[in-house]
Computed example of a mutant assay.
Amino acid sequence: MVSHRRTSQHGQSTLAGVTVVSAALATAAAGLSAPAASADPAGRAAAGREAATARVDSLYAQAERATEKYDGAQARTKELRGQVAALQDRTARAQERVNRMRGRLGALAAAQYRSGGMDPTVQLMLTERPDTFLEKASALDRLGVSQAGELRRLRAAQRTLEQQRRETAAKLAQLEASRKAVARHKRDVQRRLATARRLLNALPKDARKAFERATRSDGRREAVPDLHGVVPASGRAAAAVAAVRAAVGSPYAWGRSGPSAFDCSGLTQWAYGRAGVSLPRTSQAQRGAGRQVPLSQAQPGDLVIYRSDASHVGMYVGNGQVVHAPYPGARVRYDPVGMMPISAVTRP
C-alpha cells in the first residue's frame, strides 16, 4: 500500500511510502510477544501504533480502489440507462407501426365482410404470425399485388418489433447487473472506511491527532507552491489547471465529481469538464484518455496516474507538483508528483 502521508507542511516527497501491512503487523506482534525482561514498553506501544496506522493507510488505499470500481459501475449504469430508454422508445415506435398496419388490414377485412364475406387470404393477413403463409407460394398466388405488399411490410415490421424487444430485454438485464455492482462496490467502500475509522478511534488521542495531521492537512492553510512561469500544454490544459487549483481545499468525498467535493478521478474529470473536455469517470479509463508522455516531459494539465492498477490520479500543475483529492477526511491539495509510484502520464 502506498501512503499519502507527508512529513512536512511543504509537501516534500517521502518516496519510501510502500508499506507491507502484514510485515508491520508481524513486527508489532513480535514486539508484543517478546519476554518481559527484554521488552521495551515504549517500543512496543510505538510498534503497535505503527502497525495500526499502516493498516489504516492500507484500508484507505483499498477503499480508493473500491471507489474507482464504484465510479465505473455508476458510469456504466448511467450509460445503460440511456441505452435502455432509447431502445424502449424505438420499441414503442415499432409497436405503433405494427398496430397501424394491422389497423389498415382490419379495415380491409371489415369492408370485405360487409360486401358479403371475408376473403380467407385477408384472414391470413390478420393472424398474429402471417410469416407461415408467406412461405407458401400458393397463398401468395391468391393475394393481389397490393395485399401481398402490405403483408410483407407487416411481416418486416413485426420482425423489427421482436428484435427491438429482445435488445431491450438484454439491456435491461445488463442494467440490473450494473445496479447490483454499484451496490456491491458501495458496501465495499463503506466497510473499509468504517474499519479504518474504528482503528483510528482506537489509537491513543495523541497518536490519532498526529496521524490525522500527517495524512489529512487542510489544503487552504498550506503555502501555495511557486508555479511562476509554468506553461500549460494547451489552452484547454490551462483552463483545467485553473479549475483544479481553484478546487484546492475542497473536501474529498467518494463517488463525487464536484463542484463542492471530489474523489480523485472526479476532480480531474470536473476540472477538464470546466475546460470543455469530456474525460471518462475512472482513473483507469483516464489513463487511456490521451497521449502518454514521459514524466520528464510532463506539462501542466497532464494527468498523473498512480499505482500499477491505476487506482489514483492527480493533475500535474508544474514545478514538480500535482493537485489531487487524496482520500476520505482529506482536502484537495498540492503534493510532490513523486508522492507514490507513477504508472503513466497522460496528456488529454
Rank of each mutant, 00 (worst) to 15 (best):
M125R: 08
M125W: 02
M125H: 09
M125I: 02
L126G: 01
T127H: 11
T127Q: 06
E128V: 03
R129S: 09
R129G: 04
P130H: 11
T132D: 14
T132I: 13
F133R: 06
F133E: 11
L134Q: 09
L134T: 03
L134K: 02
L134S: 14
E135M: 10
K136I: 00
A137R: 03
S138V: 05
R142T: 00
L143D: 01
G144D: 00
G144H: 02
V145Y: 00
S146D: 15
S146A: 12
Q147L: 06
A148F: 04
G149N: 14
E150T: 01
R153Q: 13
R153Y: 07
A156Y: 11
Q158A: 07
Q158Y: 04
R159P: 01
T160F: 08
L161F: 13
E162S: 14
E162M: 13
Q163S: 15
Q164K: 13
Q164E: 15
R166N: 11
R166M: 15
E167P: 04
T168K: 12
T168S: 03
A169I: 15
A169Q: 13
A169N: 09
A170I: 15
K171S: 07
K171N: 04
L172Q: 06
A173T: 15
A173K: 15
L175Q: 12
L175K: 10
A181G: 03
A181K: 12
A183S: 07
R184L: 08
R184T: 12
R184M: 07
K186C: 04
K186P: 01
K186F: 11
K186A: 02
R187G: 04
R187Y: 06
V189F: 05
V189P: 00
R191Q: 08
R191P: 00
R191K: 07
R192A: 06
T195P: 03
T195R: 05
A196V: 06
L199N: 06
L199C: 11
L199I: 10
L199Y: 05
N201G: 07
A202K: 02
A202P: 02
L203G: 01
L203S: 02
K205C: 03
